[in-house]
Design a protein around this nucleic acid. Structure first.
Lengths: 201, 201
DNA sequence: ACAGAAAATAGGACTGAGTCTCAAAAGATA
DNA sequence: TATCTTTTGAGACTCAGTCCTATTTTCTGT
């Protein structure tokens, strides 16, 4: 069913992305203009924007959420939620690595390295509370209006932010591991919540 | 110690932000250019960028945080952290005058409403983890490298996001109340963490 | 009170991202 | 082949953000 037209489109898209990643790696993200990328891919500048809405988008093909959703739904009923989340997270990322390893390396490095891309990535992946609440609601068979569901959604997004912070502090670290560790720590309850403050001297 | 120079700077900054928020409310975020804002604040375009690094920053800039920080430091030593946070939050907002409270409301509405601002706000959340961790570290007399501190910081940011969601659902609601309620709920531990998932049918 | 130092501002030039339009090219259809 | 549709190229345009310089405003020492 793939007409010549569709094959060409796919090839153009891939080529733009390939050249973009190559140039980002060579000269850096800021120092590479969209015009450079278009030129390297032998395409007009306006064509670039027909394939990718923004310059960041070349780096961010973020299909993680739907994959995670699928993985979570596949966890057998009766599993405690935290465990289910942990398993689904592992499954998602191992599946992701198998498919596109070479480019994925570079992509991750750019996300960690270039502040602008990192910010864009966080803005997308952090998602909003409502979205996560929906996910949890369907996982637990509850309503997404449920205040407990919403609260839990917030905590989980917080956990992701913590993981990102940990990776930022120690870039060699795996994001998945950092997330898993944070979830594990939260299983023991929210730390320090009843610790006394020291006050001002 | 506040020289004329510093007072003027503070006034200029406040005026730019006030005009910006007013214009955003009137014509929308996209439809308002930095030049419009500068003009309304009777200031040069380049001056705008001396006060705010980006157009988004004019919305994200928050002069409530330092107030909260002060309020937290004023809580007597020995108070459990959650209680201290709750008290400090209350104190901060009762202290705000009518004008600032209204500005704060509008700011929050824009963060929820304009996708671009929401994204920028989320993108900064990770940085906020570090910042919040510092705050908590000094409140508890610990190091901000402490993993428990960082984790707690993430949870609190999550709580803030939850509060925003609740206000979005029920706009008549006060943001402070929503935050306080969420903190109270979290005192009882993270809800639903060990609830069994239903799996896919 | 006044001169000179330090800081803030206005104003404008410039780069690059993102949008839009239109005519030409390539592909599909019959 | 002729014709209709989709994709592309090219260029004009807006606006965010950077940078530089001359000018004004505030501060400081005398």
């Amino acid at each position: 069913m793939s007409s010549l037209r569709e094959r060409k489109k796919a090839r153009t898209r891939a080529e733009i992305q390939r050249q973009a990643l190559r140039l980002f790696a060579e000269r850096g993200y800021e120092a590479t203009t969209v015009e450079d990328i278009a030129g390297a891919a032998e395409v007009a500048r306006s064509t670039f924007f027909r394939y990718f809405a923004t310059k960041e988008d070349v780096v961010l093909f973020d299909d993680v959420d739907p994959l995670f959703e699928k993985a979570l739904a596949a966890i057998p009923a009766g599993t405690p939620l935290v465990v289910a989340l942990i398993k689904a997270l592992r499954a998602t990322f191992t599946e992701l690595d198998e498919q596109k390893r070479a480019d994925e390396e570079l992509r991750m490095r750019l996300v960690r390295t270039v502040p602008e891309i990192g910010a864009a990535s966080r803005a997308r992946s952090a998602g909003d509370v409502e979205q996560t609440a929906c996910l949890l609601a369907s996982a637990l068979g509850r309503s997404d209006e449920d205040l407990e569901i919403v609260t839990l959604a917030g905590v989980l997004i917080g956990a992701r932010l913590v993981a990102q912070t940990l990776v930022a502090r120690e870039p060699s670290r795996s994001y998945v591991d950092a997330t898993l560790e944070t979830l594990e720590r939260l299983r023991g309850g929210i730390p320090l919540f009843d610790e006394p403050v020291v006050g001002s001297p």
